[in-house]
Design a protein around this nucleic acid. Structure first.
Length: 879
RNA sequence: GGGCAAUUAGCUCAAUGGCUAGAGCACCUCGUUUACACCGAGGGGGUUAUAGGUUCGAGUCCUAUAUUGCCCACCA
């Protein structure tokens, strides 16, 4: 060994230093990444990275997304394109506020009200910046080749003002309105939520049948409800107009129990006759459907539940009680009055807050909305068009369909939140002129433009986080005049989790189209969720989470990256567990050892970029060079098709099976360093997007060795080397076929060795006529050929018959059985194939190539069958 | 209630209508022959969920069914 290379690659020893090398090279930045002559027409590739919420730490979801983005990014960079992976962080309105409130509660025992709005905002801002720095360090550990010099935060002044301008523009275009409507209210977060921020969870509940007495009558009408406490705010009872049972009651008045209020019985076709009794209580202030019905029937809205989920004054004696408490008391009181007919067990669809899981209270509240289907511009219709016309290519395809459906049924978007963290809505009120005469302006106007006098107060509400992050692709790039915007928009690629489909991806499409007239990205790639070994969601409470940083520390970033993309399909969930990561750590070691072997075998060994046919000295040379060019072809095609898992598969198969298991062993005999150096150079490049660290390390070390004594010690960086192009002249199907035959023969020898337990140290005497590749067979089969004819078992391959001198060891009966089995198998194949070739339809319809292949195969099977029969006859003679 | 997906070896998953449906893990046997025991060689293990259909040809396309998962939805 000329120089010591360690047996294993110690990832944690090198990764930081390699990342530093990349960073300092300036090649993450497309402006300074020009390793090739600057070409004006150089293709641009931009991927705006989804900004993680700046309030926690990196988890596996981020790691898997980043891996996908980085693979594509590095691939395109190596293809010579101008690549920008644009990093950033999201202030994450509600989530960050929840996190920070918990933190100050736990650490200081205080609430946000103790701090006051201004101080709270300042603290949480510092907290997010602090977390951003921390998370950035973690992101680098994954190896993502992002341009950190451009990094943005959603609250950076330039980014933010561009986002706010959109609100101003929308308002001008008549797409914004403020209204009292029923909204989803989270009592814990004390804010309104949009529809997508509400989760529906099936839970066990009860269905209460309550008797409402009719006015001036002893009759009752029974209504069924899961939320009896809302009856305090009932303003009607509704039935379906087609419902014969209640025909005569429509228009009558009932006395609302407990409240002693007179309310009408109305009819509305939206009532399901099958549900409960068919009669339903209507509470416009606390149920979305009832609110609609209330509007249509001009019913009074009586708010009996407040923002803290407590009963209001209008709820009479139950005032101040929590809804659950009030429910119990009301049911008890009703029971006392004999007004509960029955109580049934019932599965209910509970609405909960996506962030804190608290039960949602539907309330009527004054909020800002985006009209998604406005006259001047329809966000809904334009988005639908972009997807349907294929302006955005969605991976997987089926998600495009899901989006289409979602957009079709889209409701107006509530964008105001009653939280303190986040940008305030740029709307100003004048005390004199009233809230109806609001002024929209990003800067605070000096005076009220109407009355020219009074002080202006800004709207207290903040924006839905998705309002700003939904604009991320162009606010970051400096719309409308920025150079980056001109260079890179529409961006090429967006990769995001399938859980963000409606939250984020959809918003980016809507707002990007509205503001810029162009799609924000041409390709939209969804990743699935990472689950644990049993397919369960990872969560802190379950303790089944895998910490990506721990895994990187233990197995290396390359191994983690590989395990995150292996066997994945876009949009589908995948399972991750330590054994899987371990497997790829082992693979990294394998690659390392291919390098170790190559460079230890000869002190002049070097990587070879090119090779000519004269350099191919043997069958094995032609074969491996053909195979590697085939691998380049296929892997590149898979990457173009966005099928990274498949590309990975192809490369693993080549590296482990073809190169390591076969060619390296043959190299020990033939020692064609030129060929090995060529193949190694290619696979380092091919693997780089997937495993950037180990490949960069090997490449660097390998070149250092070459340049050790040279004057030019400029370090070559693999990250910006050119992606290999398949040299089709070197693809040699004939050599591949011939080598396959060789592999088959050696396989058979090994099989026999194994079944008779012949130790590897024992060399078997053998004999063959017309022997080719003798040395290879001898080495890999551990046999020794001589001229003397032998007695024993015979093996055959194409044009070759080998006799192994182990007559005394063989169990003839067992071998006979093996032959019979193989003969039957071949006979079946021949029958199948002949039938196919006799089929006129097949000959007429199948492509010529397939027909040809089948003919060749049939001939092969026949030949094999013949030789198997011969061998069997010879075997029989032996017994 | 509606939609989408999945169902292939014991497990996790591949397979772009066409070569005897492939990997890894696990399992069994053997083995340190100086790249690698984070390894190597060999082996067992499949009616591709079920039933039909289209096709010269189906794991792949179509239609049902079953099971599982996810998403959406104003059955209170």
């Amino acid at each position: 060994m000329i120089r010591e290379i360690s047996k294993t690659y110690e990832a944690n020893k090198y990764e930081d230093e390699i990342y530093k090398l990349w960073e300092e090279s300036g090649f993450f930045n497309p402006d300074t990444c020009q390793p090739w002559a600057e070409d004006k027409n150089r293709k641009k590739y931009c991927n705006i990275l989804p900004p993680p919420n700046a309030n926690g730490e990196l988890h596996l979801g981020h790691a898997s997304g980043y891996t996908v983005m980085d693979i594509f990014g590095r691939y395109h960079r190596m293809k010579g394109e101008k690549v920008l992976l644009f990093p950033g962080k999201d202030h994450a309105g509600i989530q960050s506020q929840v996190v920070y409130e918990k933190k100050i509660k736990a650490e200081r025992g205080i609430s946000r009200y103790d701090l006051g709005r201004e101080k709270f905002y300042k603290e949480i801002y510092d907290f997010c910046i602090d977390r951003s720095n921390y998370m950035r360090a973690q992101e680098k550990k994954i190896g993502i080749s992002a341009d950190w010099s451009r990094e943005k935060f959603t609250l950076d002044p330039d980014v933010l003002s561009r986002a706010l301008e959109t609100f101003v523009k929308m308002e001008k275009d008549g797409m914004i309105y403020r209204g009292e409507r029923i909204i989803n209210w989270c009592p814990r977060c004390s804010t309104a939520l949009s529809d997508v921020e509400v989760l529906h969870k099936k839970t066990a509940g009860k269905l209460y049948y309550i008797k409402y007495p009719l006015k001036d009558s002893k009759q009752f009408i029974t209504v069924a409800t899961t939320r009896p406490e809302t009856m305090l705010g009932d303003t009607a009872v509704a039935v379906n107009p087609k419902d014969k049972r209640f025909e005569k009651l429509v228009g009558k008045i009932v006395i609302l129990p407990l409240q002693n209020r007179e309310i009408p019985i109305i009819s509305d076709r939206r009532m399901e006759m099958e549900f409960g009794t068919g009669a339903v209580k209507i509470t416009p202030a606390h149920d979305p459907l009832d609110w609609q019905i209330g509007k249509d029937h001009k019913l009074q809205e009586i708010q009996v539940i407040n923002e803290k989920a407590e009963i209001t004054k209008l709820g009479g004696k139950y005032v101040g009680q929590k809804v659950e408490e009030a429910r119990e008391n009301i049911v008890r009181d009703l029971t006392e009055f004999g007004l509960i007919e029955k109580i049934e067990e019932n599965e209910i669809n509970k609405s909960i807050c996506e962030r804190c899981k608290e039960t949602i209270e539907p309330l009527i509240s004054k909020q800002w909305f985006v009209n998604v289907d406005a006259k001047k511009y329809s966000l809904k219709k334009e988005s639908l068009k972009a997807i349907k016309t294929g302006k955005i290519e969605v991976y997987p395809k089926s998600f495009g369909k899901i989006m289409t459906q979602w957009f079709s049924g889209l409701h107006d978007w509530c964008i105001s939140r009653q939280i303190w963290w986040g940008p305030q809505i740029p709307v100003w009120y004048c005390e004199k002129c009233g809230e109806e005469n609001y002024i929209v302006s990003i800067e605070k106007p000096k005076k009220c433009p109407k009355c020219k006098g009074a002080e202006l107060i800004q709207d207290q509400d903040t924006f839905d986080t998705w309002f700003s992050s939904g604009q991320w692709p162009y606010t970051t790039l400096g719309y409308p005049k920025g150079k980056d915007y001109k260079d890179f928009y529409s961006t090429e690629m967006m990769v995001t989790g399938r859980d963000l489909l409606f939250f984020w991806a959809s918003k980016m499409i809507m707002m990007g189209l509205y503001r810029t007239g162009k799609v924000p990205f041409k390709n939209l790639f969804f990743t699935g969720l990472i689950r644990d070994k049993d397919g369960l969601k990872m969560s802190k409470s379950k303790g089944n989470g895998v910490d990506p940083l721990q895994m990187i520390e233990k197995y290396g970033a390359d191994a983690l990256r590989m395990s995150l993309i292996t066997d994945t399909t876009p949009g589908l969930d995948t399972r991750l567990y330590e054994e899987k990561i371990e497997k790829y750590r082992n693979f990294v070691t394998k690659l390392w050892n291919i390098y170790r072997y190559s460079f230890s075998s000869n002190e002049n060994f070097k990587l070879e970029e090119k090779i000519s046919r004269h350099d191919l000295k043997s069958l094995a040379d032609s074969w491996i060079v053909s195979r590697v060019n085939q691998a380049i072809l296929e892997a590149s095609k898979m990457l173009e098709n966005k099928n990274i898992a498949m590309a990975e598969n192809i490369l693993i198969k080549f590296t482990w099976d073809d190169l390591a298991s076969w060619y390296l062993e043959i190299h020990k005999l033939e020692k064609n360093d030129k060929v090995l150096g060529y193949v190694l150079e290619k696979i380092l490049k091919l693997w780089h997007p997937f495993m950037p660290f180990v490949t960069e390390k090997i490449y660097g070390d390998a070149n250092l060795r070459i340049h050790a004594n040279a004057t030019n010690k400029k370090v070559k960086i693999l990250m910006v080397e050119k992606w290999p192009v398949s040299d089709k002249k070197l693809i040699n199907k004939k050599a591949e076929k011939e080598f396959q035959n060789l592999q088959e023969i050696i396989g058979k020898i090994r099989n026999i060795r194994s079944s008779y337990r012949i130790a590897p140290s024992e060399i078997i005497e053998a004999y063959a006529k017309k022997l080719k590749n003798q040395e290879i067979i001898e080495k890999l089969g551990r046999v020794k050929f001589s001229d003397a004819k032998k007695q024993g078992i015979e093996i055959s391959g194409k044009d070759l018959k080998i006799v192994l001198d182990i007559a005394e060891l063989i169990d003839v009966e067992k071998e006979k059985k093996n032959f019979y089995k193989e003969i039957t198998n071949l006979e079946n194949l021949i029958a199948k194939n002949s039938a196919l070739l006799a089929n006129k339809n097949f000959l007429a319809s199948a492509p010529k190539e397939i027909v040809e292949n089948n003919k060749i195969k049939l001939a092969e099977y026949r030949e094999k069958l013949k030789s198997q029969k011969d061998l069997l006859d010879n075997l029989k003679k032996l017994s």
